[in-house]
Amino acid sequence: MSAEEFNHSFFNANHTPWFVYDCTIVLDADYRRIALFLIYLFVFMVGLLENGLVVWVNWRRRHSANGVLFCIINVSLSDLMVIVILPFFMMEVTMDKVWLWGRFLCKVTNLIYVVNFYSSSFFLAFMTLERYLSLTRPTFPALFPVVGKRRWVLCGGLWILSFFLALMENIHVDILEWDEPGCYMMPEYSFREWFISVAFLCLIFQFLVPAAVIITCNVLIARAVQTAPDVQGRRDVWLVHVYSLVFIMCWLPYHLVMFLMIIDDIDGMLFSCNAIEALYFSFSVVQGISLFHCVANPILYNFLSKSFRDNLINTVVSYIPREETLNQVGAGPNAPNGGGGGEPGKHRKLSNASTSQSDVGS
């Protein structure tokens, strides 16, 4: 929903005439629409499959899982929420920002979209912090304990905070009848103040704070793994840094463009007309690119984990109506309940030192 893009054009057309008459750059919006449609289609198809598998496999062991896996489930649920509403955005892009599904769906889809912005980052940050504490301070109480009300209170608190932050924008989202109906954030009063406030909240709570936690904890995790004398996963230390890199790659372009938009709203004469056109032309593109976190998260935090792959195979095999196959899997070394021999203490020690997020406490 290119609310900021529309609002900016509307505002400047009424207050800075040079914006309308002095532009020399010509950008073809059709290419942007095609790119956005393909991005949405890819994220919808791949993300729906990946996150559906993650929730399906991990939900079966949610009661015995530790805090890391509990956060992974919430991240996938958050990503699934935004994935299921992507068809609305795909149709909106196809019809050049025309919204045909009424005021209720306009508000609901925008709310879900923005809630995912915050909730996904919050749970990734808490998951990384939980991971760091489990490796370096094993006696420290878990942030998301296996049992007890604290897990659900903290989980509910993160969702409520995400909902509250999203609601600050969503209360101003409505259908605007111009040439065609469109779904935009259009405050009745003080648009500039509202837009700057919402953008700064998003920058701080969705990006800067989670990024600081994720990067700091991952650097400390990498150091701890490198110094451990008996860790098999030392060769995978690079993966810890990939977690941070992917988060930055998904969200930095969006927030960088958003920050420049804030500067333009504060001082509308700072940038040239061509720079403004390029800036707002690219906004919806980087907004679409940010959705790649819905595809990257399941791969990084689940499919690269041997524990998750074993559980996925066992879950699929459990639905195959072959008694002999089920018996073999139940007695195998990769059985969900720890089948096969081995030393439990050693297995947990190596599991806790692994660089893969979902291997903790498997």
Rank of each mutant, 00 (worst) to 15 (best):
W56F: 14
F292P: 03
Y301A: 07
S64H: 07
V286M: 12
M1C: 08
M185F: 06
I171C: 01
A142D: 13
A142S: 15
L256V: 09
S307Y: 04
I248V: 03
Y21I: 15
I313G: 01
S162H: 01
C106K: 08
V219Q: 01
V286A: 12
D96F: 15
K149A: 04
K107T: 06
T355G: 08
L326F: 03
P141H: 14
L100K: 10
V84G: 08
T109E: 05
F122S: 09
P141M: 13
P253L: 09
Y184L: 10
N7A: 15
S305Y: 01
Q232V: 00
P321K: 10
P181K: 13
N7D: 10
S358I: 06
N116Y: 08
N14V: 14
L239V: 00
Y280F: 12
H63N: 11
G361Y: 05
I299F: 08
N74C: 09
L48S: 05
C294I: 04
D28P: 06
A278M: 07
G67K: 13
V146Q: 04
I83K: 13
L312V: 06
F89K: 13
R234Y: 00
Q328P: 00
E169G: 06
L53T: 08
S305G: 01
G341H: 01
L279W: 13
Y113L: 12
D230L: 01
E92Q: 14
L36H: 06
M95P: 06
E323L: 06
